[in-house]
Amino acid sequence: MAKNKKKLLIFFTLVCLPAFLIISPDWLKINGITPCWPVIVLLPFSLKNCRWRSIIASILLGFFIDSFTITNASYIPSLFLLSLVWSQYGLHNKKIELFLNIGLMAIFGAAFVGLSIWAQKIFIYSSLRNNWFHSWSIYILISEAIITGLVAPFFSSWLLLAYEKN
């Protein structure tokens, strides 16, 4: 059983995650914006594992996700900080049927990742320091946080259960 769960986790991380990133299905979008998949994957792992494992996982996941974007801003700094916070929070014998709790953490995580990318883009491109870009960034930030909060209770809690049984 444990072996099967491991396979399932590997399958989700290595096949489903890039598939979701590349295909970006319309039924998983809000205003044309997809969920923040690295947050959905990292959240259950960090909750279940120790700090060092979470940090390593966040860096590797950041490298992996960055390969699907245009190389300027990176996911690594925000995922690194989130893995620290979530691994510190941990489960600590908390009841994992806190379905909404996962959603809430995912919302904050997605918002933090979005803010990090927004800040990096402003730092990299001086031409973006104006109102037009900020309005668009707020729009993406809110949409991404909402859709991640809606999707995370399904995917993240399922992954968390898989980690628990592993």
Binding site: I22, I23, S24, N31, G32, I33, T34, T69, I70, A73, G114, I117, W118, K121, I140, E144
Partner: peptide
């Protein structure tokens, strides 16, 4: 066009 991300942080087509 096999993949489209035209409204995200990165706006690109595959």
């Amino acid at each position: 066009v096999i993949s489209r991300s035209s409204r995200n942080w990165w706006q690109l087509l595959e």
